[in-house]
Nucleic acid binder design. Structure first.
Lengths: 339, 339
DNA sequence: TTGTATGCGTTATCAC
DNA sequence: GTGATAACGCATACAA
């Protein structure tokens, strides 16, 4: 078995309390004893048992992360990495609860497995209902939102402004002369209520269009990302006059659409402007104009607020909105007059 | 404060040991008392303190994940999701240690913060040296490899066969008549020894080429993914005769190259065949021929072996190689004779 | 089948 | 500034 605090005490000729003190608040002990203890600890490769420390201190040193979607998506992977980059260094482990479907979700809020086993819970990208918020409150730890549609029920939250982002896209297209813009989005085939971001973008798109004289917004709904290309191609062929610009819910669907359209002879942006959402690395590489967000930074911001909330010293502003930037590249241009 | 085991005992009129027993091995208690206890537990929203349980049992219920690269890459995000999907359900938290650079790496192996604080450590995508292996052994828990170049020092490991994958690519190209193939790869600008996969692929490519009569392999080294397009374009223009096929280290660089080459007028696959590595979602969407791997499954396989090793009942085979599949799509074809 | 007693490795409260 | 000592909440050996 490995060294415990007792072994360190023995080896350095002091009591366990002194060892503990040396490790947690070194300035309360004599420099010389501090050196002795530290030397012994290093020699023995001593590390405090996190379980024991947690039990005594009452801190679980665990953060529960509730996620509405798989951890492997571009957004989530980056957001989680951002979260973990500050949480891990602060000594916290992150426990991910993926609410892939309604059953999992109900089960979680029914059982509340995090009760007494987390120092905070961060909710990622889904819309908790009021009943769930109440259950969560019972855990009696800070609740932090990461990309949530509403701040009610949260001690802190940081999200992006989907609505404003869509306005930037529409304003840009309108400014260069577009009046017929089609929005491409995935249909809400699930009733899990975990795709509010998609819904908000659609709303934002429509609202932004309404502010422009003569704007004629259109919608192309697709079942899954994989269907995007065919759906768009079909729509373009069947619609006259065809839209002069495409606004797509994410780069994940914008990229293949852009790719295939060009391959099939469309001149983008001359015949058709295309604008995505996310700014994944590939978007930059291929010159896709898109709305850029930074999920890694979002995760870090959420983590900072989480730690602050645990400490009881709220990080201000408690509720923040991360800006989305319009990344002007090569796929939007003045619409071709077709003469 | 929330309910502890005592509260449950009080409410159900039994001793704490009976409560503990009911929760861990329900078949050792009378059905009626079991029901009573369970009811009380549910009513009080009781969940055992993981810290206390860990302290007593000696199990930390934590897995340390050592990673040589950021958690947000496509491979890592999926591999980690796969790992967590089985580890989390088994009650384990995963603590990620990202060894972004040599200092972090040295610091980790110097300090060994996981000592007494993990039930297993899984090493992701980097090549631990013998000194590090020794240090790791001192933790006295199973060491599992996830995509590691060598199995020595590991209790179990699961990886992909980069060499065999490259052979499939080269064989395919050779079979349809290619003799001048250029391999595009990122240079080892770091000395962290964490990109063995890239190196192995290059070696595999060269070795595979050597088995084909008249094959003339070439290499295009790039600094970063972002430089790939220019480097390839430059190479193609400067080299005569130009290669008839491109083999790229990853889809992340293959996709933009494919995209830009087509945009600049190259007819792919007529003028040039292109083959990537990974099979990211976009590769399928745009028809990129590539070598497909499944990091999510890889993660799950590693997790299964991790749990088995902890239980002392090794999962056989302890060392496994996940197959890579050649995804034949639209970017490879018989080389154009140029007449 | 159930209850009692003990200890897991810390930290915190006190004396000293 | 340092050292005894008492919890923290649970799981288990043993007694009943």
């Amino acid at each position: 078995m490995k060294a415990s605090i007792k072994d360190v005490a023995l080896r350095s000729g002091v009591s366990v309390s002194t060892v503990s003190r040396t490790l947690s608040k070194p300035n309360l002990v004599l420099p010389e004893t501090r050196d002795t203890v530290l030397a012994a600890a290093r020699a023995l490769d001593y590390h405090a048992s996190r379980s024991a420390a947690s039990l005594k201190s009452g801190q679980t040193m665990r953060i529960a992360l509730l996620s509405g979607s798989a951890a492997s998506t571009w957004f989530n992977a980056n957001a989680f990495a951002g979260l973990d980059s500050v949480l891990h260094d602060a000594g916290y482990d992150t426990s991910i609860f993926t609410m892939a479907n309604v059953e999992k979700r109900r089960e979680f809020f029914d059982q509340m497995p995090v009760l007494r086993n987390a120092d905070a819970v961060v909710v990622n990208s889904f819309d908790i209902d009021s009943r769930e918020a109440v259950r969560l409150k019972a855990v009696n730890v800070p609740i932090i939102g990461l990309n949530v549609p509403s701040n009610v029920g949260f001690d802190a939250a940081v999200s992006i402004d989907d609505r404003r982002a869509m306005r930037m896209a529409v304003d840009h297209l309108a400014a260069i002369g577009h009046r017929r813009i089609a929005y491409v989005y995935t249909k809400a085939d699930d009733s899990t209520g975990m795709r509010f971001s998609a819904e908000t973008r659609l709303q934002g798109f429509m609202q932004a269009c309404a502010t422009h004289e003569g704007m004629r917004p259109e919608q192309i709904a697709i079942d899954t990302d994989a269907d995007a290309v065919n759906a768009v191609l079909g729509y373009l062929d069947a619609t006259a006059p065809a839209p002069t610009a495409l606004c797509l819910q994410s780069d994940g669907i914008a990229l293949p659409v852009l790719f295939r359209l060009r391959q099939y002879g469309r001149d983008i942006p001359r015949d058709l402007s295309v604008i995505g959402f996310d700014d994944v690395p590939l978007a930059k590489a291929v010159g896709l104009t898109t709305l850029g967000q930074d999920p890694y930074a979002l995760g870090r911001a959420a983590a900072v607020r989480t730690l602050a909330a645990i400490n009881g010293t709220p990080h201000e502003p408690r509720f923040a909105t991360q800006p989305v930037r319009l990344m002007l590249r090569e796929t939007t241009a003045v619409p071709h007059t077709g003469r």
